[in-house]
Design a protein around this nucleic acid. Sequence first.
DNA 1: TTTACATATCGGTAAATAACGATATGCCGA
DNA 2: TCGGCATATCGTTATTTACCGATATGTAAA
Lengths: 113, 113
Amino acid sequence: MKQELHAMNDEKAVEIFKALSNQTRLNILQMLKDAETNFSAQAHVIKEADFEGGVCVSDIHKKTGTSQSTTSQYLSILLQSGLLESKRIGQWTYYRRNEEMIKQFYHYIGLNL
Amino acid sequence: MKQELHAMNDEKAVEIFKALSNQTRLNILQMLKDAETNFSAQAHVIKEADFEGGVCVSDIHKKTGTSQSTTSQYLSILLQSGLLESKRIGQWTYYRRNEEMIKQFYHYIGLNL
DNA sequence: TTTACATATCGGTAAATAACGATATGCCGA
DNA sequence: TCGGCATATCGTTATTTACCGATATGTAAA
């Protein structure tokens, strides 16, 4: 049974609002929406394992206009909020959108805002 | 012709995310969704003028658990973001939701997040 | 025209966030 | 096992936010 579609409370929503209350972090989420267009092919992810749409930190870093450390920080804020998910493959960490959480958030807005 | 339904850019969205990245401000917006239930009848607004659903600052203040000055500040942040609108009637300032902006924000999320 | 009340603004302090460079850690290939 | 790369973390400073109490402003009633 598909469940948990509306499993979001106000506290979680506030955490997501915080994550998105920064232009750079919003841009990252948006760029990952069309990863093929916005980033070069992620050779390792394709070879190695099932993590479709994942992009490594350095490629994201090149697009953000912030330092490597800031990019890493921002990615972990987005990860913590649940908007992104990550997978380590070799020396790379790949990040991609968590579409399920994004959908939940969208529904939350429709119902609770 | 009904227009402007998607007239929101990333910058405006970030401002709204900021406004909502605080539990108290989120609560205010939510309480105003059902003003009749959450607040006592607003006598003056009924008598005086067309501002259906408007609630005065002191009534909101009673529910927030923050000081009068903080409540006033938070209301002006929500006003500035466009999520609320206000009208001064006599010595009271009434605030209510701007449903049009909230709808625009919801659509923005659906399209751009 | 005082007085009382509703709201906004001011000035402050503590905490959180933004952002960086430097450094540590972890994983490979030589 | 050593060097090199990718990423994470640490330590820092500047800015913003979260609040508050005190005060100013504006309106209306006595």
